[in-house]
Design a binder for these strands. Sequence first.
DNA 1: CTCCTAAATGATAATGGTTTTCATTTTCAA
DNA 2: TTGAAAATGAAAACCATTATCATTTAGGAG
Lengths: 154, 154
Amino acid sequence: MGRGPRWCHARFRNFGYKMTQPREIILDVLSRTKKHLSAEDIYIEVYKIYPGIGLTTIYRTLDILTNMEMVSRYDFGDGRSRYELISDKKSEHHHHLICLNCGKIIDYNDYIDEETKLFDKLEKVLSEKHNFKINYHHVGFYGLCDKCKSTTSS
Amino acid sequence: MGRGPRWCHARFRNFGYKMTQPREIILDVLSRTKKHLSAEDIYIEVYKIYPGIGLTTIYRTLDILTNMEMVSRYDFGDGRSRYELISDKKSEHHHHLICLNCGKIIDYNDYIDEETKLFDKLEKVLSEKHNFKINYHHVGFYGLCDKCKSTTSS
DNA sequence: CTCCTAAATGATAATGGTTTTCATTTTCAA
DNA sequence: TTGAAAATGAAAACCATTATCATTTAGGAG
Ligand SMILES: [Mn+2]
Ligand SMILES: [Mn+2]
Ligand SMILES: [Zn+2]
Ligand SMILES: [Zn+2]
């Protein structure tokens, strides 16, 4: 059930894309972290093992992966997009807590079952009522993290 | 219970800000629409009744209003932030359906009570577990709208 | 395996939303 | 009315992302 290079190769082909070394390495970098990396973060990581890489390719690949829905793109409000590999394991589905002060992100999946249940119902109701094909949803709670709660002067 | 200029004046003062004509007009523009306006959209509207306005002031005021949590800032993926006045009427709380193809936004509040109930519980659990002060949450369903569902070739 | 062509890449320049700067104007409390 | 602090707007700077285009690569046909 893992996502080896072979699995990805097939998947890329199904979407009419070729599998390339940069794409494989980008996926590898994404799969080795739990962080929410920016395009430049990814560039820096890929560069370490493939110094020929260009930032443009990072952006293009992330676009493709986002459209293939293998990657989620987020805007947490710090002026750059952040990316995260979508797990195929349902148990790893999660939502986010975002600190408005320092940008810290926490993944949580407490009560995720209840959320999922409600969202399944909602997606059904909403897609019928508004004639909408729903592909995915994003949920974020914004506030102040542990540290910033005590630190912030404001 | 409305938000007249008097109410806003006081509110601004409470946050240590002065009430000014540009700020009043920006709030007025926001309160007269149900759309999700970009900074430039707002600039264009304000300009009609106050041609001295500068785009910079729009951005600065939106920042303040966002921090005061009178306005929500969204990124729906079209490359610019979009803003919406937060209603004081609880019944007008809503979440979003976002079309990935044409950018159409639908406000919905079907089942919003159930969502609210779940989110209240979640906010309690999460803030305790992660020592997080939660100020607000954003929920968005992404997919294809009525028109784009039939139109899109992909 | 070798060729061939469409697709992918990367260096570079361009784009465009947002922020910074700074001289001028406005607010509002004394 | 007055003065200091805050707010404003024109202009320049910033910087994440996208477009361009010459070169390279992937991968199927033969
Ligand atoms: Mn995450
Ligand atoms: Mn809305
Ligand atoms: Zn923080
Ligand atoms: Zn649409």
